[in-house]
Amino acid sequence: MKIKVLMRSYLKLFFQDFLYLTMLFAIIIFGFVADQLLDISSVKKFSLLMIEMFFLALFSMMNAYHNDSQQNEYLKQKVNSYWWDALAQFLVALIVNIFSGILIFIFSQIFNRNILLDVSGILTLISVGMLGTGIATLFKTQWYRHQSLGQIGTLVFVLLALSGSTVGLLNVVEWILPPLSKLITTVQTEDSITRLLPLAGQTFIYADILYIISGFLYHENKKN
């Protein structure tokens, strides 16, 4: 019952002020018209869709946490279970990212009869979305106790996610950086979306680790 109540609440927070839906439909329309508008290849378009998916997930999750901080204090007091709350946040992010990933890919005009390509594309978008929501979750403290720390952390992680593979200095520690830029450079060099599948798995695991870290991090803070 607790998980049901919390998930319903988080889903409502995602959809209540139309930020998520507006951004989602804007991305879908971009995917639909990018060929004619910009005259770019599917691979280039997919790179752009990955970046858009990342920001869609990041901003909408940040917005959900902002709404949560404004509205749900007493709901959480009633539920009184930190771990159910953390699990509900993860599951709602997963559901929303699956929904966004499928819709964005289907309307991107990359979708075709090659099932491996479709599965790779959708899974990559979902994992990139999870990366965005994971970063928003790790720094959700910007809506609660430590506003500046949360904002700076988000900025740094976004910067690292986008530039990690392109800065030579960071090559040594590339494995600890958010793998978004790695996905983008890989799809450009390999010129194939299906080759992204292993990296999509790595990105999903990376996002899961962010969720686990934030789970323990905020649990400690709550105790204090």
Binding site: Q70, Q71, N72, E73, L75, Q77, K78
Partner: peptide, 8 residues
């Protein structure tokens, strides 16, 4: 707990 104002 009945809060003074419930923003939910």
């Amino acid at each position: 707990y009945l809060p003074q104002y419930n923003p939910q």
